[in-house]
Write a protein that binds this DNA or RNA. Structure first.
Lengths: 251, 251
DNA sequence: CGTGCTGTTGAGGACGATCAATGACGGTGG
DNA sequence: CCACCGTCATTGATCGTCCTCAACAGCACG
C-alpha cells in the first residue's frame, strides 16, 4: 500500500484536533483497508453497521434513494471523512442513507468496540469525532442555503466546496472526479440543466472544456458562487505539524 | 417560574440518553434563565459566545442573513434544543448564523467552563451533546431532501417535522406559532407562494382556516409530506422515565 | 389615526424540468 | 475485429412551477 495515500486522512484528523499520540492509535486501526469499486456502495441503506468506515482514498457521496429511484446526494466525502458517523451515533434514526464510491476508493473499517474503547480513553479523539459531526452539519447548512440560489451559483458553490475540502487535506489538483449527473443530484437540478450551466461556466473561462470537471479560475468561481470557505475552517484547532517523512517510514 | 415549563427540556435531554444523575447537574445550571422578546436575536451572528444557550421555552429559528438582507432559515428550535451547539464546537467556522426568537422565549445560559467541566466528568452528557449535534444533522439532511420537492410537499413536510419534534417533548398542541413568512424562509419559497400553498392544504382539510397555522389532519398531512419521522427518533437511547411530580417539587 | 406587519389576490414572466434525439466513448461478447 | 450496449455529454423544444411586482384588507401598535 502506498504510504502517501494516507497523508490526506492524517491531515484531516490532525486538523480536527486529534492529539499526536491519539492519532497513532487511530492510525493503527486504519491500516487494513479494502478497496471499493467505483459505483458500488460503501454503506448500504438499512444495514446495521458493526464497524465505522473511514474513507482513506477516493471520492464518495452520501445519498438517499427516493421512492421513485432518484438519487439525492447530501454531500460528497473526501479522504479522512467518516462515512457513517451519524449512523454510528443514531443507528435507529439514520439508516435510510447510503454512501457510494464515485471512483475507486479505499476504506478502513474500525470495529465498534475499538471505537468505543478509543473514545472512552482518548478525549481528543472523542472531541474530534464530535467536531467532525458538527462540520458535516456546517456543510449541510451551506448546501441548504445554496440550493435555493440560481443554477450557476449553485453549481459554482458546490465546486468551490469540493476544491476547498480537497485543499484542506493537501490535494491541490483542480480536477474533480464528478460526472454532471453527480452534480445534478447534489444540486437538485436536472442533468440537462447542469450541462447547460457548466457550459456557461466554461464560456466564462472558469471551467476547462475537458470532460472531467476542471476548475481553471478558482478566484472567479468563488466570486460567482459567493463562496466564503470559513465555514470549513477548523485550522486553528491544532497546532502541531505533520511529519510526512515519518508517515512514509511508518506505513 | 412555572415548574412545568421545564418539562419539555427535561424530556429532550432524557431522550438523548442523559443519565438521571447527570441530568440533575445540568438542570442546576439551567435554573437561571432570561426571557427573550419575540423577534429579537438569541444568538447574534459574529459574536463570540462565552456561554452555551439552551432553549427552555418558546420557539426560535436558526438562520442566516444573506447579503441582500433576506433571511434563510436552516431549522427551527424547540424547548431542549441547544441554540449554539455547533458554534460552541467550531467557534471559528460557525459564526455567521444567528438564532432568533419567533415568540417570546426563555433561554438558559451555561458558562463555557461549566460545560467543559460537565462534559469531562459526565460521559453521558458528552455523548448526549454529540447525539444532539448528529440529530441536527439528520434534520438538516431531511430539509435538504425536501427543499427540492414541490411546494405543497415542502410545506407539509416542514409542518410535520415541527409537530413531530413538539410531540417528542410532550407538546401536543397542533397550533404552530409560525407566520407564513417564517415558513417561506425555511422552505425556500416566496411568501406569496406559501400563502397559496397553505390555501391548498386548507382546502384539503389538512389545515384549519385560522390564522396561526393549525394542523387538523395530521395523518393526511404526513401523507402529503411523505413524512417518515424515524429520522427524529432517538427514543430507544434511554429507558428511564420522567417523574413529572418530582420536577414540580424540585423547581 | 397613521404605521408597520401579516395575509390575500391578480397578472406577467423567468428559470428550470421534462421529453426526445444524437454523438462520443469504453467495455463486452460474438 | 466489429457489432452491440450502457453511460455520459450535448442540443432543441415545450411546458409548468414558482417568482416578482403590485395592490389591498385586517390587525396590533404606538
Amino acid at each position: 500500500m502506498a504510504a502517501m495515500a494516507v497523508v490526506p486522512m492524517i491531515i484531516r484528523f490532525k486538523s480536527l484536533g486529534v492529539a499526536a499520540q491519539d492519532l497513532d492509535a487511530l492510525a493503527q486501526l486504519t491500516r487494513n483497508h479494502r478497496r471499493i469499486a467505483a459505483g458500488s456502495d460503501i454503506i448500504r441503506a438499512g444495514q446495521q453497521a458493526k464497524h465505522m468506515s473511514v474513507l482513506i482514498e477516493g471520492l464518495a457521496c452520501w445519498y438517499k434513494r427516493l421512492e421513485d429511484g432518484r438519487r439525492r446526494i447530501y454531500t460528497f466525502q473526501h479522504p479522512g471523512d467518516i462515512c457513517d458517523l451519524d449512523r454510528f451515533l443514531l443507528p435507529e434514526a439514520d439508516d435510510a442513507a447510503s454512501v457510494q464510491a464515485l471512483i475507486e476508493c479505499s476504506v478502513a473499517a474500525i470495529d465498534r468496540s475499538d471505537i468505543d474503547r478509543l473514545v472512552a480513553r482518548k478525549p481528543s479523539l472523542a472531541l474530534a469525532f464530535w467536531r467532525a459531526t458538527a462540520l458535516d452539519s456546517c456543510i449541510l447548512r451551506e448546501r441548504l442555503l445554496n440550493i435555493s440560489a440560481p443554477a450557476v451559483q449553485r453549481v459554482a458553490n458546490l465546486l468551490c466546496e469540493q476544491l476547498a475540502r480537497r485543499e484542506a487535506i493537501g490535494l491541490k489538483n483542480p480536477v474533480l472526479a464528478l460526472t454532471q449527473i453527480d452534480v445534478a443530484d447534489a444540486c437538485g437540478l436536472s442533468p440537462v440543466h447542469v450541462n447547460r450551466t457548466i457550459q456557461v461556466l466554461r464560456n466564462l473561462k472558469v471551467l476547462s472544456k475537458s470532460c472531467p470537471i476542471e476548475v481553471v479560475d478558482k478566484r472567479r468561481l468563488a466570486d460567482i458562487a459567493r463562496f466564503d470557505g470559513r465555514y470549513l475552517s477548523v485550522s486553528r484547532l491544532s497546532n502541531w505539524t505533520i511529519d510526512v517523512a515519518a508517515i512514509q517510514r511508518t506505513w
